[in-house]
Simulated scan of single mutants.
Amino acid sequence: MRPLPLKLAPGSDLRLSLEDLARREGIHGFVLGVVGNLTRAAFQCPGQSEPTVLEGDLEVITLNGTLSPDSVHLHLSLSDGACQVWGGHLEPGTIVQKGADVLVGVLEQNKPAAATTATAPRLEIAVLPGCPWCSRALRLLRTLDVHHTVITVNDDSTFKSVQSRSGMGTFPQVFVDGTVIGGYDDLTTLHAAGELEALR
């Protein structure tokens, strides 16, 4: 195992940043530790149909879980201004406040050289940090175990790049085999027609 430090800038999405890292570097590993604070936290509590969302001055206590190029499984605990502790399954839309330092343990033996030449997922999805419809779309894809590539729109150049591909100004933006199919409603339409399963 080798340690890999990751510094997240203010405004970064905690979960999407770790997903991007694992996919980009072909990482199989787990979170060793984290120090940082949040302006917004989204996490799934057991038995609830929708994520719980907190906003304010939030301090991260722990972040545990695993990372791979295909998915991440992370549990977050945090404290609010009243020192009340919250926690659950980390969801997109968890936004770093002043910064966060994450230490990832990379399992070298699980990172074969051939992993970088694997076939890319047919489905791509462009998302904005904090966008609720983006979070729902990502949750749907994870629930159905549909392999996908996430494009996180954190700056103007990325926004212009995906907009030039899609012609859309709203998010999420979903592409299949490089062709735009639309947003969240179009994704659910594909699901209702049973066509998402073919993209696994």
Rank of each mutant, 00 (worst) to 15 (best):
M1C: 07
R2H: 10
L4V: 01
S12T: 03
S12P: 05
R15W: 04
L16V: 14
L18S: 08
I27A: 04
G29T: 12
L32D: 07
V35E: 15
N37G: 06
T39S: 14
T39G: 13
T39P: 08
T39H: 11
R40T: 08
R40P: 04
Q44N: 10
Q44S: 13
P46H: 07
P51G: 07
V53K: 01
V53I: 13
E55Q: 05
E55D: 01
G56I: 08
T62L: 01
N64T: 12
N64P: 00
G65T: 05
L67V: 10
L67R: 10
P69N: 15
D70C: 07
D70R: 13
S71H: 14
S71A: 15
V72C: 13
H75S: 13
G81W: 06
G81K: 09
A82K: 15
A82R: 15
V85P: 02
W86M: 15
L90A: 05
G93L: 04
I95H: 00
V96R: 10
K98M: 12
L103V: 12
L103I: 13
L103E: 11
V106Q: 15
E108R: 13
Q109G: 08
N110S: 12
N110W: 14
N110A: 13
A113L: 06
A113R: 09
A114W: 09
A115E: 11
A115V: 09
T116F: 11
T119Y: 03
P121K: 06
A126Q: 09
P129M: 00
W133D: 12
C134Y: 03
S135N: 05
S135D: 02
S135W: 00
R142W: 10
R142G: 00
T143F: 02
L144Q: 14
L144G: 06
D145N: 08
D145Q: 13
H147T: 08
H148Y: 06
H148K: 05
T152E: 04
N154G: 11
D155V: 09
D156I: 00
D156A: 01
T158Q: 10
T158Y: 04
T158N: 03
F159G: 01
K160P: 05
K160I: 00
S166E: 08
S166P: 08
F171D: 01
Q173L: 05
F175Q: 02
V176I: 15
D177V: 01
G178V: 05
I181G: 02
G182Y: 00
D186R: 03
H191P: 09
H191V: 04
A192Q: 09
E195L: 08
L196Y: 11
L196E: 12
L199S: 02
